[in-house]
Amino acid sequence: MKYAVLCKFELSAASREEAIAELLGLFPVGEKSRGLLAGALDVREKVGATVVYSSIALPHCRSILVDKLTVAVGKSQAGIPWPGEMVNTVILFVSPVKHSAPQEHSSFLGHIAGKIRNSGDRIAAAGNQDELLDLLGFQPEEQGE
């Protein structure tokens, strides 16, 4: 199974907050919801940075502000200072709050864990968007979907 994701291959963010805001900018939600999601993700990062592999960060949460699993992937050539280390790949996801969502959230975490375990170095070094998404088992979300 390939997950449909939003992607920005050339992030311009120079900080963790900017990277999260830049990727949330891809989400199909309004400004107010985007601000509240940024707050929730920031809380999660403050209680423990989500760097899951050398140079890969995984900011994530569940929220009532989305109605389906929404994933945005970003890559920075310059690197982004994350607490603990620089990262160049950011996989941000927000799961909805509904009965089946905890399992969906858990299985998506499992999916990412497997991909990183098998190809972490290649994901961190991916040279273009297609390669990055393919290594992660993702496909670009269709416009207007």
Partner: peptide, 20 residues
């Protein structure tokens, strides 16, 4: 919701496996 998730065994296990 975040607190409830981290109280779930499956999610906690996944996060711990990933080094969180």
């Amino acid at each position: 919701v975040m607190i409830a998730d981290l109280n779930r065994k499956d999610i906690r296990k996944r996060e711990t496996e990933m080094g969180l």
